[in-house]
Design a protein around this nucleic acid. Structure first.
Lengths: 144, 144
DNA sequence: TTATAAAAGGACAATGGGGTCTTTTTATAT
DNA sequence: ATATAAAAAGACCCCATTGTCCTTTTATAA
């Protein structure tokens, strides 16, 4: 569904929140290993996410990544907006600049409800909701 | 939703079928102009689609692109498989190699039904069904 | 049979995605 | 204070996507 940067960002943040909930502030090596992503690239991505304020970091001994519990949750939509953009679930499936019920592309009435469901998903789910999802057993992640 | 190549391919083929239904075999200049895509790139894409047998072409004066009415319809899934691949609607939303009901990623139960709807869409809709869709007014297409 | 109209083919180029590697900065434990 | 552990920063690289442009082949109309 999403590109590598978004996937690594998503998995990293969920892992960080998951560990934070256990009073651990994981470092980049641990994160990259656990989510099965290249560590240098993951570092770059997290660096950006820290600059954007999605997550915080502490340098030096005992440092690592962590969330400020006082900040609002980070929705998938927030995250995706900052990485690959929302074209995937906000644009016209046919690629038209203007496409709506009044001027539909040939795919419009079939695609619109799916796109709406995607939008609902990314706006309702957050790093926190995923990290605390009792139905999932997220440990390591892998991709070809 | 899809990348440029897929979008241009999709719009080109739908336009060709639409014109064929009016006994016209459009040429590359006309197609590119109508779907608002770069003509040289569109030519490259159509060249590939001809080689793959999705559509046919005639060289020389009075030439152009056309579908063989005796061939089976080209589903969106067929087309997408030949361009960007089906990762968008077949992979795990979280990027896990293995993710199913038994070993779900944190997004699995929310994403699975949407992915299934996407798969249904691309398998049920075809170039032909889109070209003949009475509810759409596809003329020109545009994208930023 | 020759000029012309069209698609096919191939070389090239810009941009962004997906990375690596090394150095620098910062914090902390000793 | 100093060695050490960590994140930050920046230079660099490869390749796929997204194109352009020029030449060649093929068909047809005149």
């Amino acid at each position: 569904m999403f590109n590598k940067e978004t996937e690594y960002a998503l998995r990293s943040l969920v892992y960080i929140q998951h560990q934070n909930d256990r009073n651990i502030r994981p470092g980049i090596e641990e994160i990259a290993k656990e989510i099965e992503a290249p560590h240098a690239f993951t570092a770059k991505i997290l660096q950006r996410l820290v600059r954007l304020g999605f997550v915080q970091s502490a340098k030096g001994r005992g440092g690592g990544f962590f969330f400020d519990p006082n900040k609002p949750v980070v929705t998938l939509h927030d995250l995706i907006q900052s990485t690959e953009g929302t074209r995937t679930y906000e644009g016209c499936g046919f690629g038209l600049k203007t496409c709506d019920d009044a001027h539909p592309c040939p795919l419009h009435f079939q695609y619109a409800p799916i796109r709406a469901a995607l939008q609902k998903l990314v706006r309702e789910e957050s790093i926190q909701s995923l990290a605390r999802n009792p139905h999932s057993h997220f440990k390591a992640a892998t991709e070809k």
